[in-house]
């Protein structure tokens, strides 16, 4: 037997699958957004609001099959496509599963696809799904200390949405402190405090998504 030195990350094959999927979606002009958060952070409400507000954009939502809290019927009622992705009981989505979900979808009329990852702040951060934009949601009731407890998730995300800011008067959540903690881990992270219920802060987030979609379409 010979010894082969690899020095490769265990997830090397996933990284390759992810790069291929990213290329394929770019060619189709689709912005794939990897949405990561804990369960109960308000994903359904946030995505529904975005789909309603951005009228001229065509959406699809890919949901992971464990711990999924996006209601497919709610999403479809808004005119977006919804598809179930099978993780086979795993705690995160990977690029292969995401590509399989796109194979099952008519992709001719999609501008933005949201991949609703499995609901936790740990494992999903470790796997590249092929998304061009990583968006994490932290809701006010979860606490402003979460960047200290789940540093990788904050370090990996492009966008941090602080959701449920209409509940700020009832919680000891310091938006500035949370933003500073997140920026310390990831100076490039963009922070959007929003309330999908009242609409506060939504326009800025939607403008950012629109900008990212244009960048993909024109690339």
């Amino acid at each position: 037997m010979k010894i082969i030195e690899l020095g490769a990350s265990v997830t090397a094959s996933n990284d390759r699958d992810a790069a291929l999927l990213r290329q394929r979606l770019r060619a189709q002009g689709i912005l794939l957004v990897n949405v990561m958060s804990a369960a109960g952070s308000g994903k359904t409400t946030l995505l529904s609001r975005i789909i309603r507000d951005m009228e001229s954009t065509r959406f699809a939502v890919l949901e992971a099959d464990i711990a999924s809290d996006v209601d497919a019927k709610t999403i479809e009622a808004l005119g977006a496509k919804a598809v179930q992705v099978h993780t086979g009981g795993m705690c995160h989505m990977d690029a292969g599963m995401t590509a399989a979900a796109f194979d099952a979808l008519d992709t001719t009329d999609i501008d933005i696809a949201f991949l609703e990852n499995v609901g936790n702040l740990i494992c999903p951060a470790e796997y590249d799904t092929g998304a061009s934009l990583k968006l994490m949601i932290l809701s006010v009731p979860e606490g402003d200390d979460k960047p200290l407890k789940y540093p990788l998730m904050f370090a990996e995300s492009d966008i941090l949405v602080i959701s449920k800011i209409d509940a700020l008067p009832y919680f000891n959540f310091d938006v500035e402190k949370c933003t500073a903690r997140a920026k310390k881990l990831n100076p490039a992270i963009k922070v959007f405090p929003v309330s999908a219920k009242t609409g506060e802060g939504m326009a800025a987030l939607e403008a950012e998504l629109h900008k990212a979609q244009c960048a993909i379409r024109n690339s």
């Binding site: 037997m1 010979k2 010894i3 082969i4 030195e5 690899l6 020095g7 490769a8 990350s9 265990v10 997830t11 090397a12 200290l148 540093p151 990788l152 310390k184 881990l185």
Partner: peptide, 28 residues
């Protein structure tokens, strides 16, 4: 843990210890 034992600061970051790498394989 999170607090520096020398100066007791909490501004600390993991340098290494989070990885999973295939170092080498024996094969034929």
């Amino acid at each position: 843990g999170k607090e520096c034992p020398f100066c007791h600061s909490g501004e600390t970051w993991l340098l290494k210890g989070n990885e999973c790498i295939i170092k080498e394989i024996e094969a034929e």
